[in-house]
Write a protein that binds this DNA or RNA. Structure first.
Length: 830
RNA sequence: GCGAAAGUGGCGGAACUGGCAGACGCGCUGGACUUAGGAUCCAGUGGGUAACCGUGGGGGUUCGAGUCCCCCCUUUCGCACCA
């Protein structure tokens, strides 16, 4: 067939043209408003499949839409190019991570171009490039100077399979986020970033993101940061020393009948030393620390403890309370020690029952009658609710929540036995990775000066590429003399370079800022570029980064804002989290073996049809079920549009300019014009709300209307038909850019679709000369009548009553009430 | 256990502030054009012979409920001894 749409040739033509003319290049232009649209950059793992593509298709449609609406749209792409898969793949294939990564980037870049994504390729960055990681190191150096980057020995999460340490955020259900191997605890030296110092601000600022971020991401971050308000209290130990605890319930202090230490607590062993319990305690501590800590501290795990034989004094009532060691107490939260209030905390209650410890009620349970009389022995479970304080010395009688907490804290502070305090669940971010393919941590260890950071002028510390992978599985640079040996930057003496590399999440915590000045060698980002382009106006990515990447990026941005590098304390004004692409009931992924390769789709149906289907099949936030038959429909639609437009090219040239309004048009022509402008209005609204699926449905309806018009009336109104065609391909162009540009050119249109103004709906062209009124009797649909838009209530009523379908339902009945929803509906109540 | 989101035809999904449930697409049925059709076009397509019944189930508010309120069920996701 001669009007067959040769998408292969057409898409190649435009792809080449855009590449040759560098069409999507963006430059700073203060005279125009900017819009920064960004999709989360990919890890270059090989080939793209349609599961990956969703993110970029959504982003591209939005970017093109914004550009057509007059914005100077920054839409860049780059590569999260450091990381373990490259290293593992390289080891398995006797290749090099650098080569593996670069090959993958080349392949994925080609695929992005095939799909017609409108990136400014001049701004491409790769985190493994020295010109990029120089600035990752530079940020580390700034944090080092501020004391935010520090070294400590601690228990860390170790993944045996990845052969490296993981941050808490990277441990999902006790397993490695990347390879799902069970993580265990190991004591190690490593570098940490003090994200906890930003905890409060990161938490508070979530409020400002309410309008632009999905609620659930905000909730997840809030829970992760985990702010608890309470008090620190000192319990003096009989025989010397004090134990400090954190509690959110200072109102229950009088009920604290024992104390529990984490096994790792420095006093755990010391307390029992020299007593007859020493052996027992030591065994318990050793065994507990040796257990899997994730399992041991999981809810539902059996509570176990050992008595130290020693006592502390409750600072409120002077009572002696036994000191225990308990397996469920976390060393890294608060002070690694808790005061136990069995009557009002279920965990403490369970523990007290098991070891027969004293339970004392200090909060009255208002739900129970006269609960002060209930003996503690009769309790079935702890009462964790609020109520009046009892058995609490001078505080007895106060309501715990309304007054008690505050007054007890005041008492603690007055007597210097404690103070108000806020604790966070979030821990400092461990960034040392014992692997090769990452940005070197720019530090030299000197015997005299300790760890010294590399001066800015010596950055970047280059990751050597000429390396061998040792059999041991260790990092090649861990034993590479030429890399390790370095002079101490401070004293000039012999030093050893840090051989751990940075967590790749550091590289991705600031890349969005680098796009503003991607090639600048004298600064992380140019001030003017940053002020103009930043922050990101719309970020698009997967929900799986709700905590990891999005929290780290917020932390980095806040820090960079503090030191005056970026203009905004928050990186992403608005966030769209797109759903997964699912096939055969599982997320599309290489490991599940259910991927639909992108190249296959591009060859069989073309980029436009693939893009169209991805956007049409589901709203962006929901999961998308891949369906091979569905893309056939998209392809059919693309062909249909092409055929309809190209077969009417000569005819459309006949008309003059479009008339104004609907005056003097035949009913059919006026109807077409109404459809055109209503569709413009619908699609504009839907795009603004990211409802691509319904915008496409609206456009399809318009095409249906145009097809029946074409069959009947087209001969008489070339200008109105042409207007419809122009609107059609313009509205479609963010979704099917190749097709739209091709048709625009074919019909003699001037300039590129990319910069063509988004059409405006004209109210004069949407005016109805009759409106449909739904007629109900007792709320049930009984008929439809059409009336003039100016019809009065009475006119509508009589038209409705006289409708043949309605009449039988009113016959012999008395109308009690008539409800009229203007322009829509009339309901008779009988 | 806590928190959030979601449950609508054979399927993906529409229905913005309560007002024609099922737009649009897929699939299916019939027809046209054809040597042929897995191309294209036309018609039909929630269930029921009908009155009617239908948005996970049960109550409620309302002239009117997929939409609002209460209770319950299912699924998905997140959190889960953080004192």
């Amino acid at each position: 067939m001669s009007d067959f749409y040769d998408f292969e040739a057409v898409e190649a033509k435009w792809r080449n043209k855009w590449a040759d003319e560098n069409t999507h290049k963006v430059v700073r232009d203060e005279s125009r408003p900017k819009f920064y649209l960004l999709e989360m950059f990919p890890y270059p793992s090989g080939k793209l499949h349609v599961g990956h593509l969703r993110n970029y298709t959504i982003g591209d449609a939005l970017a093109r839409f914004k550009t057509m609406n007059g914005f100077n749209t920054l839409h860049p792409i780059g590569w999260d190019a450091f990381g373990l898969p490259a290293e593992n793949a390289a080891i398995n294939n006797k290749s090099h991570p650098h080569k593996w990564t670069m090959d993958n980037i080349a392949e994925m870049r080609r695929q992005f171009k095939i799909m017609g994504i409108s990136y400014d390729w001049d701004r491409e960055v790769a985190t493994c490039h020295p010109g990029y990681y120089k600035w990752t190191q530079w940020i580390f150096a700034r944090m080092f100077d501020e004391g935010l980057a520090y070294r400590k020995k601690s228990f860390v999460n170790w993944c045996e399979s990845c052969h490296t340490v993981l941050a808490n955020e990277q441990v999902i259900d006790g397993a490695c986020w990347r390879c799902d191997t069970k993580v265990y605890q190991q004591e190690r030296d490593g570098w940490f970033l003090a994200i906890t110092r930003y905890a409060e601000r990161l938490l508070d600022a979530l409020d400002e993101l309410k309008d632009g971020w999905p609620e659930r991401v905000l909730v997840m971050q809030k829970n992760w940061i985990g702010r608890s308000v309470g008090a620190e209290v000192d319990f003096p130990v009989e025989g010397g020393g004090t134990i400090r605890v954190f509690t959110t319930r200072p109102d229950t202090l009088y009920g604290a009948t024992f104390i529990c230490l984490a096994p790792e607590h420095p006093m755990s062993l010391a307390l029992a030393k020299g007593t007859e319990l020493e052996g027992e305690v030591e065994t318990f501590v050793r065994e507990t620390i040796g257990e899997d800590r994730i399992a041991r501290t999981a809810e539902g795990a059996e509570k176990k403890g050992a008595f130290t034989g020693r006592y502390a004094r409750n600072p409120m009532n002077g009572e002696l309370v036994p000191i225990w060691i308990a397996n469920f107490v976390l060393i890294e939260y608060g002070h690694g020690a808790i005061m136990s209030v069995p009557a009002h905390d279920q965990r403490d209650f369970d523990f007290a029952i098991k070891y027969d410890l004293l339970v004392r009620i200090v909060i009255r349970n208002g739900d129970q009658e006269d609960s002060s009389q209930i003996a503690a022995e009769a309790m079935q479970s702890a009462y964790e609710g609020d109520g009046a304080m009892v058995n609490s010395g001078p505080f007895t009688g106060l309501h715990n929540r309304n007054e008690g907490i505050e007054k007890v804290i005041a008492h603690l502070e007055r007597n210097k036995i404690g103070e108000k305090s806020v604790n966070y669940r979030i821990r400092d971010w461990g960034i040392s990775r014992q692997r090769y393919w990452g940005a070197p941590i720019p530090v030299v260890h000197c015997a005299k000066c300790g760890p010294v950071r590399v001066p800015d002028k010596d950055l970047p510390v280059i990751l050597p590429l000429d390396v061998e992978f040792p059999e041991s599985g260790k990092s090649p640079i861990a034993e590479l003399e030429s890399f390790i040996n370095a002079k101490c930057p401070k004293c000039g003496g012999p030093g050893k370079r840090e051989t751990d590399t940075m967590d790749t999440f550091m590289c991705s915590s600031w890349y969005f800022a680098r796009y503003a000045s991607p090639r600048l060698d004298t600064a992380m980002v140019d001030k003017k570029d940053a002020d103009y382009f930043l922050p990101v106006d719309q970020y698009v990515g997967g929900i799986e980064h709700a905590i990891l990447h999005l929290l780290y990026a917020r932390f980095f941005t806040r820090f960079l804002h503090d030191i005056g590098v970026v203009p905004s304390p928050e990186p992403f004004r608005r966030l769209l989290t797109q759903g997964m692409v699912v096939k055969d009931g599982a997320k599309m992924s290489k490991s599940k073996g259910n991927v639909v390769p992108l190249d296959e789709m591009a060859v069989k149906y073309g980029a436009d049809a693939t893009r169209l289907f991805i956007l049409f099949a589901a709203p962006p936030e929901r999961d998308l079920e891949w369906n091979d038959a569905g893309i056939e429909g998209a392809s059919r639609f693309v062909n249909r549009v092409h055929r309809m437009v190209t077969s009417n090219i000569d005819y459309m040239k006949k008309g003059g300019g479009a008339p104004s309004g609907l005056e003097g048009l035949s009913k059919e022509v006026a109807d077409l014009r109404r459809v055109t402008h209503k569709t413009i209005a619908r699609v504009s609204g839907d795009f603004a709300r990211f409802q691509f699926n319904t915008s496409i449905a609206a456009v399809m309806e318009m095409v249906n209307a145009m097809t029946s018009f074409e069959a009947k009336e087209a001969q008489f109104a070339p200008e109105v038909f042409r207007e419809a065609v122009e609107a059609l391909i313009t509205l479609l162009s963010p979704i099917t850019p190749h097709l739209s540009n091709e048709l625009w050119e074919a019909m003699g249109g001037k300039g590129s679709m990319r910069t063509k103004a988004w059409p405006k709906a004209d109210a004069d062209c949407m005016k109805e000369d009759e409106i449909l009124i739904i007629v109900q009797v007792n709320g049930k649909l009984r008929g439809r009548v059409t009336v003039s838009p100016s019809a009065s209530k009475e006119e509508i009523e009589s038209a409705a009553m006289n409708d043949e379908k309605v009449k039988p339902h009113l016959e012999g009945k008395q109308v009690k009430k008539v409800i009229v929803a203007p322009g829509k509906l009339i309901n008779f109540v009988v």
